[in-house]
């Protein structure tokens, strides 16, 4: 069982490593997201008071106002005034969401090309087919996240003054759990689908709401109530929150209790969805 899973996972990983165009896209996509979207939106510039207005205020307020504004922004944006940093943290979760979708896509391709039948005829456990799909999707997600993190760093990600190796590992632990849950979810959704167009449609239908109804790009507190409800049960929000807390880890502020709660949710999410995914997939692979 393990050797089969390893062999099948290797196949998946080889498949995308050998595809230079895909690798290029993997690199370009985050650059575009971070560079264009993240950098274009200058938060403190947008909400700062113009200097001619500022000069009309009494002198003691002239100093206070920008500080106050920055504090407000920082409060809303989870401890940073730099939107790029805020968004880069969110993008790490979003990229996990986008790569997880591939676990679903690839099983549909395998079905379409008859590769799945070849696996079903082989004397291997059905579980190994599913585990390999999820594992390769998780590996790919981690790889993408690492890429984004490096690019973000190069673009001027402002990590907290107490940021260390443990925070780094914490980030990837949170992303791992998110990836495990989401990959299983997409696999379970796709396993009965026979056309890749359908998977793409379903994935798009899920991906955009999951991305926007979360704290990945905008703070939840500024959303309308109904959207907040959605965002508060969205696993992307929890991963986003934990990742952001680790990135902004400073000597003055690290809400360990909140991060622990985030992890609680993520562990539950990963466990439930991976178990459910395996069950659904196994049933679907049973012969008719």
């Amino acid at each position: 069982m393990i050797s089969e899973t390893v062999a099948l996972t290797k196949r998946e990983v080889k498949k995308w490593l050998k595809n230079p165009f895909l690798l290029f896209m993997m690199f370009v996509q985050p650059v575009i997201w971070l560079g264009l979207f993240g950098k274009a939106f200058n938060l403190s510039g947008l909400i700062s008071v113009p200097s001619d207005l500022l000069s009309q205020l009494p002198p003691q307020l002239q100093e206070q106002v920008p500080i106050l504004l920055n504090q407000m922004i920082s409060e809303t944006f989870g401890g940073t005034t730099d939107y790029f940093t805020y968004m880069a943290a969110g993008m790490l979760s979003v990229i996990i969401l986008f790569t997880a979708m591939f676990s679903g896509m690839s099983i549909v391709w395998d079905r379409r090309f008859g590769f799945l039948n070849k696996l079903l005829v082989a004397p291997i456990s059905r579980g190994s087919i599913i585990f390999a799909k999820v594992a390769s999707s998780v590996i790919r997600g981690m790889f993408q996240a690492l890429l984004i993190f490096s690019i973000a760093f190069a673009f001027g990600l402002q990590v907290g003054d107490a940021f260390g190796i443990l925070d780094f590992l914490g980030i990837f632990a949170a992303l791992f759990l998110l990836s495990l849950g989401l990959s299983s979810m997409f696999l379970a959704i796709a396993i009965r689908i026979k056309r890749h167009e359908t998977v793409i449609a379903v994935a798009n239908l899920l991906n955009l709401p999951l991305m926007f109804a979360s704290n990945a790009l905008f703070p939840i507190s500024q959303m309308p109530k109904w959207l907040q409800t959605v965002a508060n049960i969205n696993p992307i929000s929890y991963a986003g929150d934990a990742v952001r807390a680790f990135i902004l880890h400073s000597n003055t502020g690290f809400d360990a209790a909140k991060v622990a709660a985030d992890f609680q949710f993520l562990i539950g999410f990963a466990l439930i969805l991976s178990l459910a995914g395996v069950l659904v997939a196994r049933t679907a692979l049973r012969k008719g």
């Binding site: 196949r11 090309f113 039948n117 070849k118």
Partner: peptide, 12 residues
Amino acid sequence: LVPQDLTVDEDL
């Protein structure tokens, strides 16, 4: 089984 469709993996 040598299936009807060509199932060898193109990328490998």
